[in-house]
Design a protein around this nucleic acid. Sequence first.
DNA 1: TACAATATAATTGTCGACAATCGACAACAG
DNA 2: CTGTTGTCGATTGTCGACAATTATATTGTA
Lengths: 229, 229
Amino acid sequence: MALRNDRILELKPVGLAYQVAAVLSDAILEGDFKGGDQLVEMDLQSCFGISRSPLREAFRELEKQGLVVIVPRKGTYVKRITRKDIEDYFPVRAELEGLAARMAAGRMTAAVLNEMEELLGMMQVAVREGDTKAYYSHHLGFHEAFLELAGNELLLGLLKNLRTQNMWHRFSYQYYQEDLGKSFTPHRRVLDLFKASPPQPEAVGKEVTAHINVALNRFLAYLDDFEQG
Amino acid sequence: MALRNDRILELKPVGLAYQVAAVLSDAILEGDFKGGDQLVEMDLQSCFGISRSPLREAFRELEKQGLVVIVPRKGTYVKRITRKDIEDYFPVRAELEGLAARMAAGRMTAAVLNEMEELLGMMQVAVREGDTKAYYSHHLGFHEAFLELAGNELLLGLLKNLRTQNMWHRFSYQYYQEDLGKSFTPHRRVLDLFKASPPQPEAVGKEVTAHINVALNRFLAYLDDFEQG
DNA sequence: TACAATATAATTGTCGACAATCGACAACAG
DNA sequence: CTGTTGTCGATTGTCGACAATTATATTGTA
């Protein structure tokens, strides 16, 4: 059998529902739909050229990600991001990432430390070059490095969901530039604490939690300007 | 307007999907389905006398609650509860409830204190009478009292989901009796700390977190006996 | 018998149509 | 003019049938 598995392009991942969910998720994250907009099944059906069944399943998927709310017999609406949502979000994420950091501190390895050091370096470069996209990407990797090390699947899943929403917040408010670089130093501190020997779980956890709560304050300050100015 | 808000009797919740989801949820919690069992659409369809569409939506609902896992093109399976699931679960819940307690401590009211005191009293009665069901119910109320007071919707939602899984664990292992009463004293301490003036958020948070992690150890000890003996 | 290829059955994925429900507006009674 | 009731259009909820995929059984061959 020569040439047997060359999906050149368009390899179907699985199921229309998941593909549609992915597309809609991106669309929402990019701001193609505004908060409060109703996702009308008939419209999207003709738009995608598919039936309503996979669409409805895609809606359920989006609801799981917290991007929409499904109101029975009314419809599916893009979730509105309020200030309170953001105020609620950060403390929860701060606490969970702090927990993850504590757990990771006890099992830190040289390999992961190197990986984080490398990512931190790339973050610094991204700051110098003003490349917000790259900064965010490496920033993401930095956090994921110790989250996975923590080895708690439930925790990992929760934080993944939360991260989606965080990305959404940032997109929604074009907060990128303001944040760029401001969070570099705290990450440096976190990594240094991870290097401590013997491990200092409590200190690392505190630092991570604090760093995220500081990010909340920066975000809220930005929101104040945004709302008033 | 005389008689304006008395729903006399249960007018239809909404939608077959939600009703089915509720029934299946109870069935899983009660152990009518074992972990790993496949929920076959055709079977349940004829069982409930409905179509497959609402069933599939109900599956998505159950997945959101963490009771099943949906494997594309394979099927929907009742989640297997492993020891690691439990080990992962408690620290996360402990951390989040600790956070909720800290937040609630700052806004505690006499009304809520009284409510918690009353619930604690009923828990004690339940212990004396060996009424596990009542104990669990009041225990639930005790926790919910300060969770709601925290005023963080996201946190409340996450913990509600987690609680469902906790209930499931207990059901799965018939852990009820062992636990009965063992957790009474810690709750007494938590409530006393909530009464402190000025409020001591850190102390309350620590106590709550610790109390839940102790519960984990009790559960794991029980599991050891269960597995070996 | 062991193993591979094929045929068959079981199960999920998708579709188009019909029914139930909701919101808005019009018609009507007071 | 105001409040209630009825009708209509729009949208979601449900259904039964068909297509695609996966799992199982059967057959053929060494």
